[in-house]
Design a protein around this nucleic acid. Structure first.
Lengths: 224, 224
DNA sequence: GTAATAAGTGTATTTAATACACTTATTGTC
DNA sequence: GACAATAAGTGTATTAAATACACTTATTAC
């Protein structure tokens, strides 16, 4: 395709905010950059889009390579293109966010991305580029998303207790929820069903285990 | 910036869905393409990003050139990059949507974009590229946006009657709203105030004119 | 004066959200 | 085997928000 040079020919990258909930806190996957620019800085996993890829398939590749998961919840977030966000020149970043249960994720180190780890979104280090902004925006989107969709299923293992479910919500919306109201609301939504078995272990009453009836994204009236 | 060719080097364009409400219907600005591909087809106003521009400033330029407005509501929508959306090759479209009162818009024809007109979103022709998809997505976003923000101010002239305000809402959410409930709700939100003057003309009772206290975007609990 | 038109106004009902505290099942310890 | 510890589980009353619904008023044209 021919195009006069008076047009901007930006480089296009994809960055992915991979969320999970661990120890009652909402966390995002952070890697350490092996190369310039920002060599050694913590950053989001991401990179150039390869030939034959779309931005989604690039995001899926990053998810598979860095977190060892596929078929998880993945949604385009925003395209960041502030002129000086990358010292190399005009670089557009098409960003995505993903949700996965902690126990399905296998963090993997690659040549370009060292020491990957989950960092609580409430205590992130200063990240490369505008990546702090990107995560901030993703957290906002996730919070509002949770209020009118069943997206939380993406953060939970196949079976879970109602208390675990509530803790996920509390971690994301960042406030305590009333136990009885939460359970009432969730049960009448009809999204989950008891598995029939109970949690074991610990010096306490065992809890009923539940599963989501469907793991397809759905819109809902309102959650809490 | 050096980059191996195994990476995708997409062209990046900006397309803008310019919404207004006219004759009680939600409409979007549609132009006719003067060039290939899709020469002669109706399409969204848009084009390449120029050197020195970001996607937002390109969207602002398109708004100024095609609709003669600036400082209107403008929000990034989504980045479309399906591999075959443009016959020329991989073209990313960073899309925006804008809201402006019909009476502030001055439609202008340019060399590349002929016969611009507002078309009701409920009866769009088949558009070039994936532009029908883009508008569909924008309408969805606008509808949900209206439920929890004061964004409607962007579609109204400086002063307006409560009936005009209600008609805008009805046009967008595509259903009738109750007059008494609508007025009650809107008044207690405290976003508008009477100007003191009244509408004139016509064989009917004159209506109180209102204005928005603030024309800044705001988040609200819920609208209707 | 009256016909036509849209403006304007209030209450009762239904539904959803919130606040709130005790009992139960289990395990480990003495 | 009693009891201490722990988290699971459960219902009702109150408050707030959403909805449903119909007549009167101000003006203009004829």
């Amino acid at each position: 395709m021919t195009k006069p040079t008076r047009f901007l020919d930006p480089t296009v990258t994809v960055d992915v905010v991979i969320f999970t909930v661990e120890d009652g806190a909402l966390k995002a996957l952070i890697i350490k950059r092996a190369r310039e620019p920002f060599q050694g800085s913590p950053a989001l996993p991401g990179g150039f889009i390869r030939r034959g890829e779309t931005s989604v398939t690039a995001a899926e590749r990053i998810l598979a390579d860095k977190a060892g998961v596929k078929d998880v919840y993945l949604e385009q977030l925003y395209t960041f293109d502030e002129p000086h966000r990358d010292p190399r020149g005009p670089v557009f970043s098409v960003t995505y966010f993903a949700l996965a249960p902690r126990d399905e994720i296998r963090i993997a180190e690659t040549a370009e991305t060292q020491k990957p780890r989950f960092s609580p979104v409430s205590a992130l280090p200063k990240l490369a580029f505008d990546h702090n902004n990107i995560i901030g925006y993703a957290v906002e989107r996730l919070r509002s998303k949770l209020e009118y969709t069943n997206a939380a299923y993406s953060l939970l293992p196949k079976s879970f207790t109602l208390t675990e479910l509530q803790k996920i919500y509390e971690a994301i919306v960042n406030r305590d929820l009333d136990k009885r109201n939460f359970r009432k609301k969730f049960k009448e939504l009809g999204l989950i069903e008891p598995t029939g078995s109970k949690s074991k272990g610990g010096r306490r009453r065992p809890a009923e285990l539940y599963r989501f009836k469907s793991r397809k994204p759905r819109m809902l009236k309102k959650f809490f």
